[in-house]
Amino acid sequence: MRKGKHTYLPEAGIYILNTCSIVGPNEGRGRFSSYYDQVLEDYDWDCKTHEKTEIKMHKFVIEQVIENSNLGRSDIDCIVGGDLLNQLVASTFAAREFEIPCLGVYSACASFGEALSVSSFLIGKGNMNNVICCTGSHFGAVERQFRYPLELGTQPAPSSQYTVTAAGSALLSVNYKEGVPCLTACTVGKIVDYHICDANNMGAAMAPAAADTILTHLKDTGRGEDYYDYIFTGDLGKYGRETLYYLCKKQGYDLGGCLNDCGALIYKDKQKDMQGGSGAGCLAAVFTAYIYKEMRAGNMKRVLLVPTGALLSKGSSLQGESIPGIAHAVAVEMV
């Protein structure tokens, strides 16, 4: 059901039955170390390339989320997956072994939000019963595609972020289960371009999109800024989070108390990570590990997930294009 301009409320209850997360060694030493289902000891995981490692990570989270929910593969109607690699080779190659229909989504680092939204449309309209959402990213694979070879001796800019090695999956279902969170609203985000051209400052490029989506969501649903216990943005980083706060404040919304950013939180402060983590696996891992488990434990009741993506390729930056941002909002509540 449509509400307001761009917000959709599912007509049936959509329950997040189960989640699974896997992270790399750096993330495993981070703030949510005890929440992840699996922490890798190294970045290879016995694979010859980092792309293959990322495929294996996607496979792992899909396999585990099915296993943990006591369902068979044939009960899953669709896998909605995404990643940052060209032609979505990580998530789609992982899905090739499952014989489950697959949809690929891309909103850069906001892909998990797009996967949740698309899944909610598929389930909410009564077309499907069980859908798996999974997104992930691998530091090594992303670096070589978007930046430089790993062994090149460059210095990171202070405004830049570190791509996380992480993948997360969530099983969405029409079937009610007690004590699991429910997906209650999706706001599909617009592409917002404020003409930031600095690829080392993605937080600034994405903050206007996040502000636009959050404010649209609040206006559409008529909810105040204190409705949610927490608003988790994807990977704005520490500086991007401050910028988002500033932008919302200028519009008359004070999000100070509830605004958090997964990228800014995923590492501990003493870990050298500049502005924090980024990547399609960032919010996916933090949600499926920390937020989901805290919600089930009753420590969070209403959460708004706002994964954020910076839309660029190596070529687009070199051709002088700016970096537009996108953010999708998904409300997850205990009902």
Binding site: P158, S159, D193, Y194, H195, I196, D198, N201, A204, P208, A211, D212, Y239, E242, T243, Y246, L247, K250, Q251, Q275
Partner: peptide, 17 residues
């Protein structure tokens, strides 16, 4: 909301250097 030019000025002033 602010316009692009104003925002870019804000970012160049406040971004970590």
């Amino acid at each position: 909301m602010m316009d692009g030019k104003e925002y870019c000025e804000y970012v160049s002033k406040t971004a970590p250097k």
